[in-house]
Design a protein around this nucleic acid. Sequence first.
DNA 1: ATAGGGTTAG
Length: 640
Amino acid sequence: MRKNKPFSLTTLHPHFPSTSRRRSAATLAQLPPLKTQHQPLLNPTKPPSKTHQRNPVPPTKQIQEHPLISIIKSCSHNTHLRQIHAHLLRTSLAQDPTISLKFLSCIALSSLRDIGYSRKFFAQIKRPSFLHHNAMIRAYSVTDKPDEGLRMYQDMIRRGVWANSFSSSFAVKCCVRISSFVGGVQVHGRILRDGNLSDCRLLTTLMELYSGCERFGDALKVFDEMPKRDTVAWNVLISCCLRNKRTRDALSLFDAMQSEEYGCEPDEVSCLLVLQACANLNALEFGERIRRYIDEHGYGGHTNLRNSLVSMYSRCGSLDKAYEVFRGLQDKNVVSWSAMISGLAINGYGREAINAFEEMQKTGVKPDAQTFTGILSACSHCGLVDEGMMFFGRMSKGFGISPNIHHYGCMVDLLGRAGLLDRAYRLIMSMDVKPDPEIWRTLLGACRIHGHVNLGERVIGHLIELKAQEAGDYVLLLNIYSSAGNWDKVTELRKFLKDEALQTTPGCSTIELKGVVHEFVADDVSHLRKDEIYEMLAEINSQLKIAGYVVEISSELHNLGAQEREFVLSYHSEKLAIAFGVLSTPPGTTIRVAKNIRTCVDCHNFAKVLSGVYNRQVVIRDRTRFHHFLEGRCSCNDYW
DNA sequence: ATAGGGTTAG
């Protein structure tokens, strides 16, 4: 407990200009002469003036800050910080609690982000309060040493230094940065003991932590126990759903938060997040709803929302609407152009994407790394090998952007599809970034297309090295073996797959009907209309067989008899979604399905034949592209 | 009490 009156500079130095006048242009030059103001600042000799005592006003409003504080606040340049530091040391102002605190937090947030500097200054404070500790933990949380911030917090608790909800908040931030679930649980425990259970912001940070550690359940629990939830809390929950593969729940939350029970208005961030969910799920109608909401609530002018709309429309296969929004954008920035270029790319308009790229530069917008990801994927989707190579070269030479893993991925796809497998392999080996499993899978896909057994085996070797091999990868290898007629290897691999319990990314397909997204996994029996769906699937199977559809058994890894294999295949998630689509739409309409992983050969053929027999346009969007099927043909030359 | 915390487009 402090016995003295709060330290106030206002009363001590009435000659300082008032806050309001000072605010306009505070610079170091406006400081009172340094030499004359040594002692009085820390050792008040004059009592506070009487006028203040006669008119008691709430002290918080009355206290004026030291001019140094406003200088520190407006100080963005590092050299200025150093100057102020020197000044603080000279005048022993460094020991003033308010000033040192302000300075400490300023170092943390300045462009310097120099934790060493913060540490040094902290060490110079003789009696740091818990506020100084808080500022340090915060500093750690925004630099590259978040683990030390957590340690400092733990140390604080251990030494019995007073800690408040802000200390915990910064500590949680540190845990978020290093994805430390264990550390987060500790801080959570402390928060519970401190009884900070009604602090909405603190709990939101905690949700953010669990979200980042892929602990959806824990995040939801925190949310549930919050006594009062504001829009940001809902937004964090939505973003948590997006990050933890609960995309469909993200859509329900948009409605739930608005319900009478909760009465929380979605803001522009909510819209941004939900639009992402729509894009992932292919949920065009829901996306349209969000668009109406945006217009009705006056968010229509937000460029980020419009950019998000461009992306949502194009990822839902509605390129014309994407273009319409794009055209209406008054201030197209690099994100708008990149969204449009990627949109053209995934929809198969490679040339148009390149044109857009040129036009973008004419309007003076400079491309960045993600623009090039879009343009390179346009080239790979449309088989524009020379153009792709050209852009890949121009990227670093002409624009100073060094290729990242996504750029390399596009190039591997481009070269691989074109049959230049050795070059693709050499490119991966020459990369200055570590190859990820995804890029090896891209090459493996190319090996399948071109029946390259040796390279395929080598790629599997690399995946094993990364401990990332999944069942789906071996299925591709199986396809390669069987198309090469290498039956011994096929048998051997089958046996291996049967014995080994391999990890698989569960395939999942979604289809939107009347604004409701339906989700299917393989062998799904959870849908309300499952009986009708399976009946329809049986009907479709027999119709397609008449039309010449043959089940592609090599897609399946189960070591079963041919009859049973066929049975297993018919339960793939995209078939269930398509069957549901046929069930719910009249002939002549479009069935749009989104798949989270690669669509298998068999489902590809299934959709192709079905589009003719049932007179539906079928569009399957898998990880990177659209597969359009119409009248028994597909748009991608059976490159699946 | 003091300063200070959460979500965000391609």
